[in-house]
């Protein structure tokens, strides 16, 4: 079972939910936490994992053999990202724009293009007690998180309960993280900002056919608009975490909610039971 935790809006509590949920499920079979927010992984700050291995993540980029090249320009026409250009008797490769799709080498009639790996980040594997942990780190200055996220997801153990912490937003890295999950928890806050970005996140999860449910964080102040929206759209509100200074203080000390206030562990286990039920229904319908 793969459960991703996303939000739309940043700073709503994705990592708070993902880490405490994973910790609360320890002792109920294998649990694995994947931090897919490869641009700014932060679950490790709360979980302090022991990292056992680190592997480079590479993207294949074109290398042009000038002896064979006829400067026909087909590679440049084929590239959807304008990452390869033919200007006069020169072929220019813009490696940072290359998505590694291989179209240029595929269409080259002269066989002048080979592929060479370019490192864009790393994946790290480790443990937090009995829980398995993995995270990706995108190199600073790189624009494409996708290959690193896919490398993290490849480490998912099909026999384990996998919790994937997604990046904020609703763009490609989020889609990449959520895609293939059995369920997506959307963490939001009861504010107009929270609702606006939640709406987009719900549309994303529907587009890629992943059933979703909502966790309302910092519940209390704010307005009713998120509740109204969820009722209208028949999206289950699965948990409410109150606006509570003690939670904020513990988080600021780098403690998870599950560790700082252990009474929450039961609530997270119940949350997971409901998710499992909803995911089973989602996969049938």
């Amino acid at each position: 079972m793969i459960l991703s935790v996303a939000s739309g809006k940043g700073g709503t509590g994705k990592t708070l939910v993902a880490t405490s949920l994973a910790l609360s499920l320890q002792g109920q079979g294998a649990v694995q936490l994947l931090d897919c927010d490869v641009e700014e992984p932060n679950a490790h700050i709360l979980l302090r994992p022991q990292i056992d291995s680190s592997r480079p993540v590479t993207v294949p980029v074109p290398a042009v053999d000038n002896e064979k090249c006829t400067y026909c320009g087909l590679c440049s026409e084929a590239c959807a990202y304008n990452a390869i250009a033919v200007a006069g008797r020169t072929v220019l490769v813009f490696r940072e724009l290359c998505h590694g799709c291989g179209a240029c080498s595929y269409v080259c009639p002269a066989g002048a293009i080979s592929e060479e790996p370019r490192q864009v980040g790393v994946v790290e594997r480790g443990r937090v007690g009995t829980m398995r942990f993995a995270q990706g780190r995108l190199n600073v200055g790189e624009a494409m998180a996708g290959p690193v996220i896919r490398a993290v997801k490849r480490l998912a153990d099909p026999a384990a309960t996998v919790i994937s912490d997604a990046p904020p937003g609703t763009s490609c890295p989020v889609v990449e993280t959520i895609r293939g999950s059995d369920f997506c928890l959307l963490v939001t806050e009861p504010t107009p900002f929270g609702l606006s970005d939640l709406t987009i996140a719900v549309e994303v999860s529907r587009e890629i056919n992943v059933p979703c449910g909502v966790v309302i964080n910092r519940d209390g102040p704010g307005d009713e608009s998120v509740e109204r929206y969820c009722a209208q759209e028949a999206i289950p509100v699965l948990m409410r975490i109150p606006f509570d200074r003690r939670i904020a203080e513990a988080y600021c000390r780098g403690e998870t909610l599950a560790a700082a206030m252990p009474s929450w562990q039961q609530a997270f286990r119940e949350l997971f039971d409901r998710v499992r039920g909803l995911a089973a229904v989602g996969s049938v319908s």
């Binding site: 940043g10 700073g11 937003g169 763009s171 900002f193």
Partner: peptide, 13 residues
């Protein structure tokens, strides 16, 4: 660009 976390909303691209 777009901000990240807190009040500013998430990164979007």
């Amino acid at each position: 660009g777009g901000g990240r976390g807190g009040m500013g909303g998430g990164r979007r691209r």
